[in-house]
């Protein structure tokens, strides 16, 4: 288990991912070639870039096998990343983006801010209420009224 999730294995895994990506993009890049002169072809630069990505992917895989730079995977100590918190925050933001066109900027943003401040650990009801009411109104006043910026 430890070996699979080691930084060294990470380099090999990531190198593999980028290699597949390079092949995928290289193939679709090559498909753009219209059969004419390569110097004029829209495929020229994408194919060059995909090749470059492929070479660097192989270098990354090589680093993994040779233990080169494996120590970099060790993240600085102190604050470990919580996948659950990340997923929670991301899903909340996606729901916010999905709800915006339906519910309008001020009400949806107010609900989102209340939920997000709760999620980040704020527990004082007055603070949550103040942030979720004042912030959308302030943003609306500054951007919509002041700068004539369209809001979602």
């Amino acid at each position: 288990m430890n070996v699979f999730f080691s930084p060294r294995a990470g380099s090999i895994r990531e190198g593999g991912f980028f290699l597949v990506l390079a092949l995928f993009l290289g193939y679709f890049g090559y498909c753009l070639h219209d059969g004419g002169q390569w110097s004029l072809s829209p495929a020229l630069f994408p194919v060059m870039l995909s090749s470059g990505l492929g070479v660097l992917s192989l270098a990354l895989i090589g680093q993994g096998f040779l233990h080169v730079r494996a120590e970099e995977g060790k993240k600085e100590a102190g604050y470990p990343v919580s996948p659950l918190r990340t997923a929670g925050a991301f899903i909340l933001c996606l729901l916010y983006a999905a709800a915006l066109p339906m519910g309008g900027f001020i009400p949806v943003t107010a609900v989102f801010l209340a939920l997000f401040t709760l999620f980040t650990g704020e527990r004082r009801p007055r603070v949550i209420a103040a942030v979720s009411v004042a912030s959308p109104l302030a943003v609306w006043l500054i951007f919509r009224m002041g700068l004539s910026v369209l809001l979602p």
């Binding site: 933001c93 916010y96 983006a97 915006l100 943003t109 989102f112 801010l113 997000f116 401040t117 980040t120 704020e122 603070v127 942030v131 912030s135 959308p136 943003v139 951007f143 910026v149 809001l151 979602p152």
Partner: peptide
């Protein structure tokens, strides 16, 4: 408090 507001600013 700041992070949720920054998220809204990112969206706007």
């Amino acid at each position: 408090i700041l992070l949720p507001v920054v998220t809204v600013l990112c969206v706007v």
